[in-house]
């Protein structure tokens, strides 16, 4: 299990690095082509924008590994450890449910787009570009479900 997780982590990290370098490379390459050779890649700009979406959502996936998302942390520091476990449990459940809903509806969206058969650029179908949305939310859902379970177990195991 932990092998699988560490492989997934490596894949995510590698994706982040290669997507960012690819974006920088594509834009700079476009500038060089234009100024040096009076030409350009027509589909580079739309591709780069899709890559920004991918980069962002994969970044959000990685942020979920450690529950490191933008949040307001005003109340929690006034709570006792015991009580905070319960509120955390509750929040993890809430996050899991919302992300699961998001996964479901974005998956439906991608299926509709697949049936539509539109092209994004070049001959890449648009649904392939959109696929990152349900995948990212799916993985975020799983991560928060695991936080929830972990917290639940902690509550029901007596402190050593």
């Amino acid at each position: 299990m932990s092998r699988v997780i560490s492989i997934l982590h490596k894949i995510e990290d590698a994706l982040l690095v290669s997507l960012l370098l690819l974006i920088i490379g594509l834009v700079v390459f476009q500038i060089v082509l234009r100024n040096g050779f009076d030409t350009g890649i027509v589909w580079a700009d739309p591709l780069v924008r899709v890559l920004v979406l991918w980069l962002g959502l994969i970044g959000a996936m990685v942020a979920s590994r450690t529950d490191n998302h933008i949040s307001i942390d005003i109340v929690s520091k006034y709570l006792t450890t015991g009580f905070k476990r319960f509120t955390d449990l509750f929040i993890y459940l809430f996050t899991t449910i919302i992300c699961a809903l998001m996964t479901q509806h974005s998956a439906r969206f991608v299926l509709m787009e697949k049936a539509d058969g539109m092209l994004a650029f070049f001959s890449v179908p648009v649904w392939l570009c959109e696929l990152v949305i349900p995948v990212a939310f799916g993985i975020i859902t799983i991560r928060y479900a695991l936080f929830f379970l972990g917290n639940l177990i902690k509550i029901f195991t007596p402190d050593p």
């Binding site: 234009r34 009076d38 030409t39 350009g40 027509v42 580079a44 700009d45």
Partner: peptide, 17 residues
């Protein structure tokens, strides 16, 4: 694509922005 094709047909490579 349509704009790119029509500009290219005059033998020039356009700049997409």
């Amino acid at each position: 694509k349509a704009s790119v094709d029509s500009v290219s047909s005059f033998g020039v490579s356009p700049i997409a922005l």
